[in-house]
Design a protein around this nucleic acid. Sequence first.
DNA 1: ATAATGAAGAGACTACGGTCTGTATCTAAT
DNA 2: ATTAGATACAGACCGTAGTCTCTTCATTAT
Lengths: 199, 199
Amino acid sequence: MNVRQKQGQKTKQKIIEAAIALFHERGFNNVTVDEIVAVTNTSKGAFYNHFTSKHEVFAEQFKQIDQFYVEHLVPQLDADQPVMERLTLFLELQMTYLQNKIGWDVTRTIYEQELSTERSSYFLDPDRPLYDILFSLCQEGIEKSEFKEGYRAHNIVTVLIHGMRGVLYNWSLNRGRTSLVDEQRMVFRALLDGLKTGD
Amino acid sequence: MNVRQKQGQKTKQKIIEAAIALFHERGFNNVTVDEIVAVTNTSKGAFYNHFTSKHEVFAEQFKQIDQFYVEHLVPQLDADQPVMERLTLFLELQMTYLQNKIGWDVTRTIYEQELSTERSSYFLDPDRPLYDILFSLCQEGIEKSEFKEGYRAHNIVTVLIHGMRGVLYNWSLNRGRTSLVDEQRMVFRALLDGLKTGD
DNA sequence: ATAATGAAGAGACTACGGTCTGTATCTAAT
DNA sequence: ATTAGATACAGACCGTAGTCTCTTCATTAT
């Protein structure tokens, strides 16, 4: 990385940090791009050279979310446990993390952005790590006959993703006034009960 | 209603009809308020006198959705059938209606608006007819022991709403490329299976 | 009949996300 | 060493949602 690129990355990082701090402080919608470039002593030109939109600054911390799942949540899952137990634990840990570390405003902003923008969507990216995590768990679950007959791993993942979306959308809609962890528990208890083999 | 109010309502209606037509024609984001007031020979003043935002013009047709549920879907439910059957049918009819008559762009716009605006939210309005429909069905289901022990009607409604939100959000996100009806079937089969009494 | 009130509406104006053009400077090819 | 190209950045500019002020005129009170 040469001098020029290094300078660019420094500016980009400076903007990210200032923006995230401001968003956290006063909420995404109450922070303007003009303000971000003002406090960082940069310019619109610099900002839009590094990001395609104000929303995209979020993508930075968003990518860290899946990273966190892979690095800190998956290792907590005990491979000796049934897949169902592991799924339940994963969902519990995931939602706890989102509720306590990420917060509803960031979640809301991401959910809003994904709907509004024509640009590339992270939710629709099939290579998203979250999908791999769920897929391999579901695959294993099917092999061990923990799921009802007739389900393909892909279908179960779809169902689970729908559940997550519903729970997270609703939590965002309620501006964090509901308990994400409690609602998640209620929804996925029913969902997983409906998916598992009746014995 | 005096002359003045009558004139006001006439203007409002004119704006609604023109706006809905334009939205339907070219998509919500590609229609500007300036354009709407131009084709209706009105003004920004008139527009914002009747609506608090461009999004709100949608609310008009949105209210018709619940109206439709009450007037056309609920009557199709056979009270002799088990509640579970009726719920399944209701969801099927609901999603078919949304897919074929309302469309993903309108749905997407509503879902986006509900997240973005600080203003009054229709989704959060406890008096929304949809909630009554679901609540009374669930209440009856509990009385007839069709649901697992321990569930309150209120909880089941919450779970169902989460399911709907997830399915509809995802469908909007995919810009109608997935089959809402099929995905709904998959999700709610699992969900209702998990809620019903195991016998 | 006259005056006061206040809603419906017109349209200039503001705020802000995003674009466009221009400039300085680093890098790479000759 | 010189030159051509690329890129980080500055900041003027644009488009559009939403606001503010002002006018008009139906309605109501006196």
